[in-house]
Amino acid sequence: MTIGLVTAVVKPHVLGDVKQALKDMGVTGITVTEVKGFGRQGGHTETYRGAEYAIDFVPKVKIEVVVPLDQSTVVVDTIAGAARTGKIGDGKIWVTTVDRVVRVRTGEQGAEAV
């Protein structure tokens, strides 16, 4: 069975909703990283002692889920549904193919390790 890696970059405040949605659909594990990004959303300006600083990077969270590739579509839809606010900067989701997966504790490989 082919394994896929779903990577989503979304707004930080939707993380709780995304996590719950994935849990509800039976996903047993995800990895989350605080990242910064710039995209169409643009950044903002901060002012310190009158000096303006352009903050191009806005905080985002990156969510990674390893799943059987045939489930990746529904995972993507679930994340998109939970992360969508309709405002610019909602983020992006992509899927890559994974050659190999190992569960560290047991040494299980492939679909069993997902």
Partner: peptide, 19 residues
Amino acid sequence: EEVEVGGLDQALHAETAYN
């Protein structure tokens, strides 16, 4: 609501605590 969700520091004061 947008300010409440995104944070008051940046929206109201143009500062953030942890750069």
